[in-house]
Design a protein around this nucleic acid. Structure first.
Length: 469
DNA sequence: TCCCCTAAACATA
DNA sequence: TATGTTTAGGGGA
């Protein structure tokens, strides 16, 4: 529309559009602030001669402002680099700067809520003291921003493209997605040393990035489902060290994470390992969106889901841990449990494999139950939250609780899990979990209601069941 | 009224 | 100092 007349000195694109474009154009779909500046200077004629500190203060300030302001931008902690965070596009589509960034709800309310929250957080921070905002991002930076992963690729939805003259209108749809801002999550990275979706060191590696992204997105997609409440809760639960540990096993880098905050989400999201479809396809770009939406529309997995995603189906022990971790947060378990889990999770191999017969039985049942969430076959399926559930079930089922078997979800490759997880669970439950407050969650693999599990199969079932809400 | 730009105060690392 | 987050004010549609 306005194309003919420029809204801004550099054209009709808003800062948000330019930033989106910069990120999209980056190989990894993520850039640091400095890289964004650089892109601007190199790419946008107007800024070409404004790279110097003197003349750049204003527009750089605007860039930062836009990054923080818009949900469409996710901040991912970039520890590895030791520098500033990675900024990515929110797959979920945050909108471009619209006011209503987050919730579709009435703007007024939503905005107010947001602000109120923000303030609340701040207050806490301040109150807490100088130390810093505990609530927000990891303690680190606060804002959680990043939480989510983002890969730009998906945006097709939101049209992040700068091309659109004004991004304004469109995108609103995504409200759901954006509902929670990654912000908090930004620290997700905290998980491992490397938060960035892409391993810092590896940035070059194409592999991780993409997959990770996918995983993230996926996760993110899931997260949206979380109610704000959950989100908030999560935020509150700073201390949790979720566990991401899971991955740790998988990827060395990720393994330990000392602090993780609300970011838990982000972490999971970003975590390469988590990618659901993991690699199944070179690009998730297409997949993700659809799948995510589908997921969302159909059910939204609770935060737990996200957590779930972290678990790598392939990774036996980690998965178990991951599950535990998930449960804890939701439940309210504090960090402690998680940690414990982590430690214990490490020894997967010990577990005795399930009997073939049992497995077959499980599968049969599984088959009977419609798989909700899982689209893909084996591993991938496991990747889903559902997996986690399964994992849970597995835990219980196998050696510990024979009956549990019946309830196990089908999708998963139970085989994998069962083999690895059996004992651990038991062990964990008995020893560790008991410690946790939240342990209450229904962890019981054996829920009486046979169906309880069915759903599970998909993530949600499980999540819901134990997610406290 | 909404969206965006700009400026600036603050906070944090 | 760089990076982030918020808030506030102004202009255009």
């Amino acid at each position: 529309c306005l194309r003919s007349s420029r809204r801004n000195a550099w054209g009709n694109q808003s800062y948000a559009d330019l930033i989106s474009q910069a990120i999209e154009n980056s190989p990894e779909k993520r850039l640091t602030l400095a890289q964004i500046y650089e892109w601007m200077v190199k790419t946008v004629p107007y800024f070409r001669d404004k790279g110097d500190s003197n003349s750049s203060a204003g527009w750089k300030n605007s860039i930062r402002h836009n990054l923080s302001l818009h949900n469409k931008f996710l901040r991912v902690h970039n520890e590895s680099t030791g520098k500033s965070s990675w900024w990515m596009l929110n797959p979920e589509g945050g909108k471009t700067g619209k006011a209503p960034r987050r919730r579709a709800v009435s703007m007024d309310n939503s905005s107010k809520l947001l602000k109120s929250r923000m303030r609340a957080k701040q207050t806490k921070k301040q109150a807490g003291a100088a130390g810093g905002g505990a609530l927000q991002g990891d303690g680190n930076t606060g804002s959680a921003g990043a939480d989510s992963p983002n890969s730009s690729q998906q945006f097709p939805k939101w049209g992040v493209n700068s091309s659109s003259p004004s991004s304004r209108g469109s995108l609103d749809d995504n409200d759901m997605w954006t509902s929670f801002r990654p912000r908090t999550s930004s620290n997700a990275s905290t998980l491992s040393g490397r938060l960035s979706p892409i391993a810092p060191g590896q940035e070059d590696d194409d592999n991780l990035p993409d997959d990770s992204l996918l995983g993230r997105y996926t996760a993110s997609s899931l997260t949206p489902t979380l109610t704000e409440t959950l989100m908030e809760e999560l935020d509150l639960i700073d201390g949790l060290t979720l566990m991401t540990g899971q991955q740790g096993g998988a990827s060395p880098s990720t393994a330990p994470f000392s602090s993780f905050k609300p970011t838990a989400f982000s972490n999971s999201l970003f975590n390469p390992m988590s990618s659901p479809g993991s690699h199944a396809s070179g690009h998730y770009s297409t997949h993700v969106p659809s799948s995510l939406e589908a997921l969302l529309t159909s059910d939204s997995p609770p935060p737990s889901d996200v957590m779930m995603t972290q678990v790598d189906p392939l990774m036996p022990s980690p998965g178990g841990v991951g599950l535990m971790g998930l449960g804890s947060p939701v439940v309210g378990v504090r960090s402690k449990p998680n940690q414990l889990l982590l430690g214990k999770g490490l020894e997967p191999n010990k577990v005795a494999p399930m009997d073939p017969s049992q497995l077959s039985a499980l599968k049969a049942q599984h088959a009977a139950v419609p798989a909700v969430g899982s689209h893909h076959g084996g591993p991938v399926a496991s990747a889903n939250p559902s997996v986690s559930l399964q994992g849970m079930s597995q835990f219980g089922a196998p050696s510990c609780f024979p009956t549990a078997q019946d309830r196990l979800p089908t999708d998963l490759d139970i085989d994998m899990f069962t083999e690895n997880l059996d004992c651990d669970v038991d062990y964990i439950i008995n020893s560790d979990l008991m410690d946790g407050d939240g342990i209450d969650f229904n962890f019981d693999p054996i829920l009486p209601g046979s169906q309880s599990y069915t759903g599970p199969a998909t993530t949600q079932g499980s999540t819901h069941s134990w997610v406290p809400s």
